[in-house]
Write a protein that binds this DNA or RNA. Structure first.
Lengths: 192, 192
DNA sequence: TCAAAAAGTGCAATCACTACACTTTTGAAG
DNA sequence: CTTCAAAAGTGTAGTGATTGCACTTTTTGA
């Protein structure tokens, strides 16, 4: 379907080299102790080129973002019958995480982000980018107007819950507790 | 009570000049279009001095922070009998806001922050600084261990709720809706 | 085969922020 | 009233991320 020409392939390859170099160096020596110059050197590109591919140093570590939003929305829209929206979001988050847990770098990566304030901040704004879309998807599901406060709130709370959950050792339990709270509050709200 | 010597007074005065200059310039021309050099010049201090008083450009706009945490904790700990924790937090937030609403600059300030991503991010991390303390205060209230997930979650949700609420025109209503959700979820959780 | 678009480069500049070595002011002790 | 160390302030020179620019090389499509 999407046959890529040599140009596109090379471009992706360059991008990948840069991302790989960044991940390796950052994991080994920490985000703040590696300069972008060094990343560019290891990827054998110029700094200018690096910034043509990534908008910021932080972005070097957060690549996959296109499909994330659609799968998030999908989790709400196409949830199994009888499943509440909070439950669907909870399942989506832990399900998506399990797909990564086997990856040996995943935990180190999580630890790196966890321990670097600028990365935590960046990751969070990346997630919050989806807040509006998620809020609207929720509103559509319950037949509320697109700007509905409760839907915006639930969207925000769910994304933040994810953040809290992933910063905890006992993720399963944390997920159950936090989404349990949202679940009850949400159900109660639906009556009104 | 706290008699300040001339030195301390001058120091505070310098700090205030800087903060004033910053507020004026940022409100007039936007945060990103004013350099710290310019702020320092208008306050008639060197850039070095500016950074001795404030840790970052963003910090120029967020001064009051010392008592905020204690009043936040106090709102939970000393809440009127029969008031739930979420309700106490809601009242605290809207009460604190009302103390500022008369200030003519408050709305312009809110708009400035709202429209400047780096300021939004900074304000948020400022608030999240209190998350841990708030979580522990909540835990103490309900006799849970200090690291309890539900308390951490409620703390996070409440602080985020504040953020959502203040970005809305209909603050009163938004507060009622969002804290209503938290209230119900929290009560249900308390049964277990 | 050729011209325009795209990818990449190096250089210089901007901007927030820091380290440093320095001068001035001030509080307080003698 | 002196004196002296701490605190406040300064200018200079740096670092590190990020951008603008003018340039070369590659690739594509007519």
């Amino acid at each position: 379907m999407t046959e890529l020409g040599r140009r596109e392939r090379k471009k992706l390859q360059t991008r990948q080299s840069i991302a790989d170099a960044a991940l390796e160096l950052f994991l080994a020596r920490g985000f703040d102790d590696v300069g972008v110059k060094e990343v560019a050197d290891r990827a054998d590109v110029s700094v200018t080129t690096l910034f043509k591919h990534f908008p910021s140093k932080e972005a070097l570590l957060f690549d996959e973002d296109a499909e994330m939003e659609s799968s998030l929305i999908g989790a709400v829209r196409d949830r199994p019958a009888g499943t509440s929206i909070p439950a669907a979001l909870r399942d989506h988050f832990i399900g998506a995480a399990e797909g990564h847990v086997d990856h040996p770098l995943f935990e180190s990566f999580a630890r790196l982000v966890e321990s670097t304030p600028s990365l935590r901040a960046y990751q969070r704004t990346m997630w919050l980018r989806h807040e509006k879309a998620l809020a609207e998807a929720i509103a559509a599901e319950i037949g509320a107007p697109p700007g509905d406060v409760r839907c915006a709130g639930l969207a925000r709370f769910a994304l933040e819950a994810r953040d809290v959950i992933f910063s905890r050792p006992d993720r399963e339990r944390a997920a159950a507790e936090l989404f349990g709270l949202l679940e009850h509050g949400w159900q109660a709200q639906q009556q009104a």
